[in-house]
Structures are given as structure tokens and as C-alpha cells.
Design a protein around this nucleic acid. Structure first.
Lengths: 212, 212
DNA sequence: AGACTCGTTGACTGGCGAGTCAACGTGACT
DNA sequence: AGTCACGTTGACTCGCCAGTCAACGAGTCT
């Protein structure tokens, strides 16, 4: 079951998963055939069904694999006590945006095919999505406790605004509504945190007047 | 072509559209059959194809119909010069949230099946979605000009954060990640604007200390 | 060399469901 | 009564594609 790493043998299962990312991103999950995935992977049609029970299970696997990495990353960020809430959120934003930067197809598939269609599949996905909210909410909650964040906006709600902004950002890049350049990625990290934490309004406190 | 309003005759086209909302919301666009829509409407299978060229065209129609109403509403709100930026955004949030309150199934279909799958269909949808961003961005832009909103966050970016937060909010209600009660709807209107404009952080200026 | 394992192959099937179409009913106009 | 238009019907077709399966062959062990 485990791939015998070390030999020159290619892990066909991995090959199929990677091909699926490409194909799902290009044609969409519902508009592609399993044979497209097999062709893209350079593998026989039947082999797909040797490793996966169904087309949908491939999508599940891709989502769960990646989502778990993200959950672990957020948990790790939350544990870094030397960081303030704003810095923690910046790290989270960085992680997600870098995920898109390095694997745009995979992130596209997850956002377009999974996070919004979560009720089409089992409740497992929703459970996992909720966990992400909760992780972020924990960061917000501790900031509320120590007085950095407003008490009258619940942690869940704050987490939602933050994550919503990020997901919308990725969507905009995916759909070419915003330019997806290296510069934009970096700027977006700072801006999304600034917008979420500091708000859009100019405040009396330290609003940096960066003229451009 | 136009429905002869006034007679007791039911507009079958409308009947089919309404049935489609119910069925798409319940089963998902891809997991339902055209016959399900026909059955729900209490109409013969073939009649669906009398009024629509394809299953997808029904979805298009539902989206475009509703989206145009929203675009018009946002334009109207932007024109009301007596309102400040925060009030304008509150009106926009109110409109969208009330849309969900009154027609949850339709909004579910639009958010789940269209806004995130926009590239599966023609570019027309993306164009319309971009228009919504632009309308909101215009509100943000005028606030930037008069110094209410920060200059270092572009209007497009600000609009995206705001709309992203709202769409995430609706998603959370749709997927039962947040309670969808009348009270929550009303509270959310204020909170989403407060979070977007004022930010999550406590600022030195007028952060209302609503204890609860 | 025989036997067994197991990753791999790809032609094949089964059925599902989108879209078609010929026919029917009804109302209007002559 | 004739006929035309058109909303309506639902059984039927037909292509597609998810999923199956029998066979292959490269290892490995005896």
C-alpha cells in the first residue's frame, strides 16, 4: 500500500492524483471524464479504479490531503506565542496565499469544486471546513480576551470575515478578476490583514499614511 | 412571449423557474435531472425544453434575473448622496442579507452553483460578477477620495473584502455553520459593516464598548 | 519451471439522463 | 366546420461515461 520510495518506480497513485489536479482545474470536475485523468497521467483507464473507488473519491483525497496540511499549519501558527494576533493572521494569510502561489491548480480545485459545493458530498468536508474556521476563531478569540480585538464582534464572526476575504481574493485571482502577479501576492498578504484588523476606515490611532 | 397577466392562467415558464430553484437548492444542479424539475413544477418533461434550450439555461436565467436586481439595488444605493460610506455599505449588506432571508433557496443556488463555478459557464457570468465588485468599489472609492477610507487599500481590494465577508456569511448560513435566525440576520448586517469598516482591532477612536 | 502475487491494461457494458419529436387539445379567427 | 397557431404532453432515442473484468507480465519464492 505504501509507495516504495527509493526505487525508480513512479508512484502511479500520486501520478493519478496530480493528473486529476490538472484536469479538474482545466475542465472542472463535472465536465471531465475519468479517461481524461487517466490520459493526463499516462496510465490505463482501469488503474484509476484500482487506486480509487470513484471519480469523487479522487476529489475527496485531494481536498482532505491539502486541507489537513492547512489545518496543521494554522494550529502551529496559533501556538507561536511570540506573535501578536495581527502577526498570526498575517502568517495564516501568507500560508494560504503561498499555497495558491505554488499550487494554483490544486487551490482552484479546492475552492471551486469543494468549499462551495460541500453539501453535495458527505458531511466530512463541512466538518473539516468548520475546523478551519475554529482554528482561526481561536486566534481571534485570544485577541478578544487580551483586549486587542473588539468584544462585540464574536470570534467566529471575525474569523469568517477574515477567511471570507482571503477566499474571495483567491477567487478573484482564479477568475482573472485581479492580476495574479508575485507583487500582488505579497501586497495582498499585508493588505488583507490590514483591512481585516484595522478596517477600511481611517482611524484616529496609528493608520499608516503610505502615500503612493 | 410575454405572460398574459390578468387571466387566471399560470405562467408555466415561471412555474418551471421556481421549481428549478427548489430542486437545484435541494439536490444540486449536477445531481438533479431535468425530469425532477418538471415533476416539481407539475409540468410535462418536454415543456421544460419548450421554454429553455437546456438545463444550464435555466440556471443562467435564475442567476441573471436575480443578479441584475442586485446590481440595480447597489447602483441606487450608491446614488443616495445623503448616506455616508458606512451607511451605504450597510444598505448593501442589508439588501443581500434580506435577499437570503426572503429567498434562501435562490441565493443558495446562485452562491453554490454559480458564483464559484463561473468559469464552467460562459464569460457572461464573470462579467456580471465583476460589475457587482465595481459597483461596490465605487462606493469605497468615493470614501477614499473624501478621506474617510484609507488610501493605501485600493477600492477594488476593499470591495472584495467586504463582498467576500458577506458571501462567506451566506455560505455559513447555507451550510449550517452559523445559526440562521432572524436575530442573526439583523445583527450580521451591522457586524459585517463594523468589521469591514472599523476592523476587528480596538482603535483609539470611537470603538463602541458594547458589553454583553 | 511452475505457481502465485499484484500492479497494470484497455475493451467492454450498462444505464442514465439530456434532449427530440410526433401527436394532442384548445382557443381564436374565418 | 375548417384550419391555423401554439402551449402542452411524455414515450423514445442515443451518446456518453462511470465503473467492470478478464487477461497480461514482471517480479518473487520454491
Amino acid at each position: 500500500m505504501a509507495a516504495t520510495a527509493g526505487t525508480g518506480a513512479v508512484d502511479k497513485r500520486r501520478l493519478i492524483l496530480d493528473a486529476a489536479i490538472t484536469v479538474f482545474a482545466r475542465q472542472g470536475f463535472h465536465h471531465c471524464r475519468v479517461s481524461d485523468v487517466a490520459d493526463e497521467a499516462g496510465v490505463a483507464y482501469g488503474l484509476v479504479y484500482h487506486y480509487f473507488d470513484s471519480k469523487e473519491e479522487i476529489l475527496n483525497e485531494l481536498f482532505l490531503e491539502r486541507w489537513q496540511i492547512m489545518l496543521d499549519a494554522i494550529t502551529a501558527i496559533d501556538r507561536r506565542d511570540e506573535l501578536g494576533p495581527r502577526e498570526k493572521l498575517h502568517e495564516v494569510a501568507s500560508f494560504i496565499i503561498d499555497s495558491y502561489r505554488h499550487e494554483p491548480d490544486l487551490m482552484k480545485v479546492i475552492i471551486v469544486e469543494v468549499t462551495r459545493a460541500a453539501n453535495s458530498f458527505g458531511r466530512l468536508h463541512l466538518q473539516k471546513i468548520r475546523e478551519a474556521y475554529d482554528e482561526i476563531a481561536q486566534i481571534v478569540e485570544s485577541a478578544r480576551r487580551d483586549g486587542t480585538f473588539k468584544r462585540d464582534i464574536s470570534a467566529q464572526f471575525g474569523a469568517m470575515c477574515f477567511y471570507g476575504a482571503i477566499e474571495q481574493l483567491l477567487s478573484a485571482w482564479i477568475f482573472d478578476l485581479l492580476p495574479a502577479t508575485e507583487d500582488e501576492f505579497e501586497r495582498a498578504k499585508t493588505l488583507v490583514v490590514e483591512a481585516t484588523c484595522g478596517g477600511l476606515e481611517v482611524s484616529a490611532s496609528g493608520a499608516p499614511a503610505v502615500s503612493g
